[in-house]
Write a protein that binds this DNA or RNA. Sequence first.
DNA 1: TCTCTTGGCGTACAACGTACACATCAATGT
DNA 2: ACATTGATGTGTACGTTGTACGCCAAGAGA
Lengths: 249, 249
Amino acid sequence: MAARKEEDGKGESRLVEPSLWERLERPAPTQRASLTLDRIAAAAVELADEEGAAAVTMRRLATKLGVAPMAAYRHVSGKGDLWALMFDRVSAQLTVDDAVGDWREVLRSFALQTRDMMLRHPWLGQVPTPLIQLTPARMAVAERQLKALAGHGLDTDSMMAAFRAVGAFVHGATQSEIALREYKRENGWDSGDETRRALAPQMNYLMDTGRYPTYRKYGLSATRKDDPAWEFEFGLDCVLDGIAQRLGI
Amino acid sequence: MAARKEEDGKGESRLVEPSLWERLERPAPTQRASLTLDRIAAAAVELADEEGAAAVTMRRLATKLGVAPMAAYRHVSGKGDLWALMFDRVSAQLTVDDAVGDWREVLRSFALQTRDMMLRHPWLGQVPTPLIQLTPARMAVAERQLKALAGHGLDTDSMMAAFRAVGAFVHGATQSEIALREYKRENGWDSGDETRRALAPQMNYLMDTGRYPTYRKYGLSATRKDDPAWEFEFGLDCVLDGIAQRLGI
DNA sequence: TCTCTTGGCGTACAACGTACACATCAATGT
DNA sequence: ACATTGATGTGTACGTTGTACGCCAAGAGA
């Protein structure tokens, strides 16, 4: 982790640790280096995909890399860095063709892609903290969304708030979808019906308290209980409609 | 954790473990019991409030309760139960007066209250998994929201999806607000300006790649960068407007 | 050739969740 | 009155975790 000199605006120079992201794109400085940020990130993602977020421990990662437990610490400052790296790596898959101009189509596409990505990498829903969005791939997404929203007469703050609102919804919705899915998987419940049957005693107790009459009344007549994709799109379209209203379109 | 008999619909009876929630409301079965679910939950919440999510370990909880490390396991099946208990406990603070009839006011009030609650108990943003919503207090919230949405010509599925969409947004938005806040706190950055100054090198590197021209252009002209409440309400109102559109109001 | 930097290794420690066997007390049936 | 039983708390112990710290070898520059 060598430091380098950097000029700041006032002609003074300071020593600056090259950031995780700067180092991520640099080639290995020596030939000996068998570990690189890229290899570390790839292995960690693979591990998480195969065995879940809990399996991502520094030791298991090290064995997967064929290396001693502490080796990765030369490249990564700790587990926080590791999650950030993993998060950025999978986020790099998200793109919307530059030819697409319609703001709504852009935001919608990113939202659906993000949900898919999170379902494909469920550990994204369990990462300790939904990390600071200052990673290259996240910035690229923000850039593309801003570009789509710009020029519709919205002030900067509203533009920022708008795409972040979509992001917040997507994250929240998918996170709870994942949580439910994992909960079912852990208990070996394969279908929604099986889940409801298993949870019936608890549900019955709660209902028998008589405190939730409306819920009882409507709960039964729902027909899309097991259609998370539909529910997701419903919510997503609500948010987009709200934004559209502000864009005056 | 005594089992009791329960009749199912077909006149057959099985042994059913009383659920966490059923036990939560029962008085202590013997006088000797110095530990109750209520006392455990209260201590855990207090611990988390004072020292953060990471401080909630079974051992620290035990010492706080003046009891041996393993004692709580008689009442709680593990750490998962504990989080659920804590989550339910703080959620019980959420209420909207029955006199309020307007659906939008109800949903909006719950959303703002939830954000406040999460900011007051930041560990809610770091709980391993945003737990299954089958707890008494969460059900009460759902009940109240459903009641407000009912009778506006929306089908059951849409009603469910609508209030869940709001919940997803609230969770996602507040979670990232908390993450940023904690990140700043950990680094001792007090103001937004101080944070930006500290993050400037990373930001500069990213910007100097030339990949984010739109972001660069608009990023500077934003004037509400440090007004999370405003941003939250902006997004919230987008979601509510989208729902309003579907209610035909 | 000698030195310095880089990168991987090995050991070590405190803290974690929780399994399991044990002890102790209150209530209960006789 | 007394033995029995179930509910509660205790004590010990194990395997696993994140990571601090010091060491050593391999390549780069002089």
